[in-house]
């Protein structure tokens, strides 16, 4: 039974691309859409989510043998809420402007499905080091996804990347891209692109053995 569970390395790699939380599992959509109007806010959000995800996965994995099945979701949520409170207070103390700008989306990490999903799928059944590797992999995948969306939206919407001007001076800013509709459309198109590339890749893999 232990043997058919993925190992730490598999969990880590799966999180980044094959089971990318945003593009493949479609989890955690609220922060993905809401904070990607600039790279700085997107990366702060990714950092906060990574902190909560890693801590929650480790704690849930440590107490996994004490959990009663019917109370487990409640225990996950309370664990997550505790770490989110820590992250929220730290951000408010050291990055006050960013915490003001992110507003309710930091506390909304509590109901981010990625974290509950990882606690349920991995941490509640596997040892601490595997749960930690899984959390780091998933966080990296989430960071990559946020960075890709934020890059498209910030470069097209404000002509900057991390606040540094990258577009030529005469570039008309597509204001729509930093507004809510831009978020939906960018994510939809990127999702389509990822699906298309995956289809191409699997086709290529299938075609190769017959050619060789």
């Amino acid at each position: 039974m232990v043997n058919d569970q993925p190992t730490a390395l598999e969990r880590f790699i799966n999180g980044i691309l094959p089971e990318n939380p945003t593009y493949r599992q479609l989890l955690g959509m609220c922060p993905t859409l809401a904070v990607t109007n600039g790279m700085q806010s997107a990366m702060t959000m990714a950092g906060a989510t990574a902190f909560v995800l890693i801590c929650a996965n480790i704690v849930v994995s440590l107490i996994r043998n004490l959990l009663k099945p019917h109370l487990r979701i409640l225990v996950y949520t309370l664990t997550i809420a505790t770490f989110v409170t820590i992250a929220d207070r730290v951000l408010a103390a050291y990055m006050y402007d960013m915490s003001k700008q992110l507003g309710p989306y930091i506390p909304l990490i509590i109901v981010n499905c990625i974290i509950v999903c990882r606690c349920e799928v991995c941490a509640s059944s596997q040892a601490v080091h595997i749960a930690a590797a899984d959390a780091v992999g998933q966080s990296l995948g989430f960071t990559l996804a946020l960075a890709s969306i934020a890059t498209v939206r910030e470069v097209l919407g404000a002509g900057t990347w991390f606040g540094i001007a990258v577009m030529p001076a005469g570039f008309p800013n597509w204001v729509l891209m930093v507004l809510p509709p831009g978020a939906f459309i960018t994510l939809g198109l990127l999702l389509g692109l990822v699906n298309w590339l995956t289809a191409l890749w699997t086709q290529g893999r299938k075609a190769k053995p017959t050619a060789a």
Binding site: L176, P180, P181, F184, G188, G192, A199
Partner: peptide, 23 residues
């Protein structure tokens, strides 16, 4: 709908157009 956009992708793009209307 183009194959790659089927499912959630086209839903998100439609939601974007709805959001545009609500703007």
């Amino acid at each position: 709908v183009p194959k790659a956009l089927r499912g959630p992708a086209i839903t998100l793009i439609t939601a974007g157009i709805l959001a545009l209307a609500f703007l």
